[in-house]
């Protein structure tokens, strides 16, 4: 009994040390998204390039696709455009949700769609264009409904318009292979 008790503090210390050690390698940003397994929120967003086209969740149904939240102002989003373009060539359907930054009326010029279109076009020519089309989320209200915390973020949406994966951060070959590709294939084959 005495001998066993003698080792208790050591064991307790080891358990605590292991617990804290595992914390060193965990990602504090990783958490289960609240939008998983829910239908896309209701929206009616204008197409970025053809503002007369209005996209609704209903129109997006029928095929599994990636919903990629991005903006030309976001360096990480620009960095992933190349790889996303490769995925498009492999047959992955990618829809862009353009995350426009808020404007400070005191310092920024008013929003100008033509300027933004030009910026986007230029960026996509430089880096590659992975998108079937882009929807403009000017007030970021759809992003808020989707639980987007910033850009880039990517959702896998199934053929019924239900969110099946939510990835925060960029998509690179490693992330695609280990995390998103299996889910994409799983929901594509159903």
């Amino acid at each position: 009994m005495r001998k066993v008790l003698f080792y208790v503090p050591l064991l307790a210390f080891l358990a605590l040390a292991l617990f804290l050690l595992s914390g060193l390698f965990s990602d504090p940003r990783e958490r289960e998204s609240a939008s998983l397994n829910k239908a896309l929120p209701n929206f009616a967003l204008a197409d970025l390039m053809q503002p007369n086209t209005i996209w609704t969740p209903e129109k997006l149904k029928g095929e599994v696709f990636l919903l990629n939240v991005w903006g030309t102002w976001c360096p990480t989003c620009n960095a992933e455009l190349g790889y996303l373009s490769e995925l498009r060539q492999q047959g992955v359907k990618i829809v862009g949700l353009y995350y426009e930054l808020p404007r400070d009326p005191a310092f920024d010029p008013p929003f100008d769609l033509a300027v933004l279109q030009q910026e986007v076009q230029q960026k996509l020519q430089q880096q590659g264009d992975p998108y079937q089309f882009n929807m403009l989320d000017l007030t970021r209200s759809v992003s808020l409904d989707l639980g987007v915390s910033g850009a880039p973020e990517t959702f896998i949406v199934d053929a019924d318009g239900i969110v099946r994966a939510h990835h925060i951060g960029d998509i690179n070959p490693a992330v695609w292979r280990s995390k998103l590709a299996p889910l994409y294939q799983q929901w594509s084959s159903q």
Partner: peptide, 23 residues
Amino acid sequence: CPQCQNQNIADSHAVVAVDMREK
């Protein structure tokens, strides 16, 4: 704030915090 760890939305200037305050 979902973007900046350990800040509430009153403290944060992240875009998402501004949007959440507005909402």
